[in-house]
């Protein structure tokens, strides 16, 4: 079932001034429930602008956004409700922490939802555990945490609202490789556990290749495609023409295929490539 749908969504910044710029141009898309979806595109391709339409932070210049089949702009008084159901984590969310303790900061969103204290406590502990924040950290000031922990605390603040759709804008920017992998695993576990939809904006093809089921590709304010990750990476040449890379391993496999090796076309993670190469080698050994 589609959870988020847009129809002819268009957004123009600073309309009527010399700085006018169309950031999203007639985007029609339908995102399914319970998916892990990657969002990729060049810098300035309109990814972030598109994401801010999904929870009504930006009002489309033209077109409509539907959440579970309902136009989110139909009734403005219910906009807050929309924001609780579509959680948005901006880039570098650690700069939005403000409370005295991490616990209270995470509680800000759930409190705004009007949940009971017991429910809030339960959600915070569950979310903290999912993101690897210890009990001890919850009691500390968010400003006393390390960069990666701050980032987790900020993401927890949105996750604790248990939105139907969670949008994460570059959640791994500036983290070291181990931190990245950890964070992405935690996000995937969250998605599986809550059966919700997660939109993951990223610049790293390796990350989206490994962790997402679907890919949404933006290019020059337009939707280039929205399809299964495997299907998208099969269009390697087109992606390159857009200035996007495919995962390194996919390039290597593509080159091997061109040399005449019998490899399937959708090898875009290291694990799958390894298995395919091993079986190829075994076949070769058997033939000898």
């Amino acid at each position: 079932m589609a959870i988020l749908t847009t129809e002819g969504l268009t957004y123009t910044y600073s309309a009527g001034t010399p700085f006018e710029k169309t950031a999203v141009d007639h985007v029609d898309i339908s995102i399914e429930d319970n998916t892990m979806c990657g969002v990729i595109g060049h810098t300035g391709s309109g990814k972030s602008t598109l994401m801010q339409h999904f929870n009504g932070l930006l009002k489309p210049t033209e077109g409509k956004v539907f959440l579970e089949g309902k136009d989110i702009w139909a009734d403005k008084s219910r906009m807050r409700d929309v924001r609780f159901r579509v959680g948005l984590v901006f880039q570098y969310p650690e700069y939005q922490l403000f409370e005295e303790t991490v616990y209270r900061d995470i509680a800000f969103g759930p409190k705004n939802m009007g949940l009971s204290d017991d429910e809030i406590r339960h959600r915070i502990h569950e979310t903290a555990q999912m993101l690897g924040l210890t009990e001890d950290m919850l009691k500390r000031s968010p400003f006393a945490l390390s960069g990666g922990q701050k980032r987790r605390a900020a993401i927890a603040g949105v996750m604790a609202m248990r939105p139907k759709v969670l949008i994460l804008d570059e959640p791994c920017a500036g983290l070291d490789p181990r931190g990245r992998a950890e964070m992405l695993c935690q996000i995937r576990d969250y998605q599986r556990k809550t059966q919700s939809t997660v939109l993951l904006v990223s610049h790293s093809m390796e990350d989206v290749a490994e962790f997402t089921d679907k890919l949404l590709v933006m290019s020059k304010a337009k939707l280039f495609c929205y399809d299964d990750t495997a299907v998208v990476f099969r269009r390697a040449e087109e992606l390159k023409a857009l200035g996007l890379r495919v995962p390194q391993i996919a390039s290597v496999m593509g080159a091997l295929r061109k040399c005449g090796y019998d490899l399937p076309p959708d090898l875009y993670t290291v694990e799958k490539a390894r298995d395919a190469l091993l079986s190829l080698l075994r076949k070769g050994a058997a033939e000898c």
């Binding site: 609780f84 800000f108 969103g109 705004n112």
Partner: peptide, 29 residues
């Protein structure tokens, strides 16, 4: 402001004291 709104902060409604309190999540960061 966008980030706090996404967490359900209300900035443009409520009584005076509530509005002042609503500024804390913006001013501190």
């Amino acid at each position: 402001m966008s980030a706090q709104k996404a967490r359900g902060a209300t900035l443009d409604s409520g009584k005076v004291m509530e509005r002042i309190r609503a500024l804390i999540p913006i001013l501190v960061p």
